[in-house]
Design a protein around this nucleic acid. Structure first.
Length: 446
RNA sequence: GGCCCUAUCGUCUAGUGGUUAGGACAGCAGCUUUUCAAGCUGUUAACUCGGGUUCGAUUCCCGAUAGGGUCACCA
């Protein structure tokens, strides 16, 4: 029987940040591994910055990632508990109310409740870093509330952790220096101290804290760009944690089985979008065909339509295998479509007559080869790429593959770079293929 | 600046008192190929510096340096 209880204490002052997601993942893994309970706690004591919309986003994105919890609390609904704690501290002479000049608004007076700091040295054991000692004298008498009904962060956290029976506090290292303050409050209140584990923060490519300036920070942004939940979850988890098996591609269930706090790293890691892209592509490739089609279809259709090209559904489905080996996100697909990369699948290309012949061969040769192709393709089953290839391969080998296949590919795509002509022909079908070859023939200077 | 944390390829990392210091992403090369991708194969690249301890330090200790965090009437 285990009594592990962890908390997920996001502050609803912004959309779900990838840092919040990582905090939730690590706590989730630890709790599940130890048969523990997970307590979600919305830390909304800052009335000015907290918004319901943000709280909803955090819940939605964490659920999307596949995470869940056993209890849900909101600090704004627990003022009675904080009031009791604050009044107790004041009654026992461990805290006091003072009337000071406002820092935010100089010139005005404001009431604030401060903890009477004994100024001792505090040492706590960090499960990731070992013993950490602070001299709390320099903390002075720090503020714990604005009033009995208006607690500040440290007080609320300590009261909640105690009331909710939290056994392990797993959070980012930006909280290391908050820990002695919270321990002081715990001691004043006479409640027990949970175990602490501070993991490193992930950094922007400039080695600074992740911020909007250096890329997306909200989970919803990655989601809208086509990053899959298991891919983002996987990347966030292994960025700062190595499972004993050292697997990189690992499912949530497998992570739970392998998780141990001792395998968390001590130093901050840079959030690398390239590696995330690799993870996403791996997960994309593992998707069933139908799911993958549903994944990219809206992006493809919208991109095509904005270029004035109708998205033919059968063709759009037939390029699935092509797309699965070339894209890592819908964001990337959108920019490829926008640049006209896939236009030729859906609309006849505009041809530049001078580009129809292969570099080393003449217009005359190109014409002969294209005429041959029309004849050879008659009666071929276009459902099969290999049937198309078989119909032309021997001829192409005999007359020069470049000389034969370049004009054909260019006739079909109008591009100097594209998938091979057999794949393209199969996707666009016999009618379009023959029509485009014919168009090339007519464009050719004779 | 005070306090705290951290330090292996460009990036994420494995690892050890004696190793050819391993893997992944990215890069590069070759193969394949009509082109471009993909794929396959191969490959470049790292123990921050200075002292100590030791027969021997990337590994242990100290210092420096660098990076990060934190110093609210935010969380």
């Amino acid at each position: 029987m285990s009594s592990v209880r962890v908390r997920l204490p996001p502050s609803p002052t912004g959309y779900c940040h990838v840092g919040t997601a990582r905090m939730a993942i690590l706590n989730y893994l630890f709790a599940k591994k130890n048969d523990g309970a997970i307590i979600f706690r919305s830390e909304d004591t800052d009335k000015e910055r907290s918004r319901v919309e943000f709280e909803e986003d955090i819940i939605e994105q964490l659920h999307w990632l596949g995470l869940s919890w056993d209890e849900f609390h909101r600090q704004s609904e627990r003022t009675a508990a904080y009031r009791a704690a604050i009044e107790k501290l004041i009654a026992e002479g461990k805290a006091y109310s003072s009337d000071e000049e406002s820092k935010k608004d100089p010139g005005t007076r404001v009431a604030v409740i401060r903890l009477k700091n004994p100024g001792t040295k505090v040492t706590f054991r960090d499960l990731i870093r070992g013993d950490i000692t602070f001299d709390t004298a320099e903390l002075k008498d720090f503020a714990i509330a604005r009033s009995a009904d208006d607690p500040l962060y440290h007080l609320a956290v300590v009261v909640d952790d105690a009331d909710m029976g939290i056994t392990h506090v797993i959070r980012g290292e930006d909280h290391i220096s908050n820990t002695p303050r919270q321990i002081l409050i715990q001691e004043a209140l006479g409640v027990s101290r949970p175990a602490y584990a501070h993991y490193p923060l992930h950094l922007s490519p400039e080695r600074a804290k992740l911020s909007k300036r250096t890329g997306d920070v909200a989970v919803r942004d990655y989601r809208s760009k086509g990053y899959l939940a298991p891919a983002l979850l996987n990347y966030l988890a292994v960025l700062g944690w190595t499972p004993p098996s050292q697997r990189e591609l690992i499912s949530l269930q497998e992570m739970v089985e392998e998780f141990d706090l001792k395998d968390l790293h001590k130093s901050g890691a840079i959030f690398d979008i390239e590696k995330l892209n690799w993870f996403n592509r791996e997960y994309l490739r593992a998707m069933p065909r139908a799911g993958f089609i549903a994944y990219y279809m809206p992006t493809l259709r919208a991109g095509l339509e904005s270029r004035g090209i109708a998205c033919d559904p059968p063709i759009a489905e037939r390029i699935a295998s092509l797309l699965s080996q070339s894209i890592h996100s819908t964001d990337q697909l959108a920019s490829l479509v926008e640049s006209g990369e896939y236009d030729f699948f859906f609309a006849d290309p505009k041809l530049d007559a001078s580009k129809i012949p292969e570099r080393k061969s003449s217009a005359n040769e190109a014409e002969n080869h294209l005429r041959y192709a029309i004849g050879a393709l008659d009666g071929v089953d276009f459902e099969s790429e290999t049937a198309i290839k078989d119909a032309l391969w021997d001829y192409a080998s005999e007359h020069g593959r470049g000389a034969v296949l370049w004009p054909l590919r260019y006739a079909l795509t109008g591009k100097e770079r594209s998938p091979d002509p057999f794949v393209v022909a199969s996707i666009i079908g016999k009618d379009s293929t023959l029509r485009r070859i014919d168009a090339a023939l007519r464009a050719l200077p004779v």
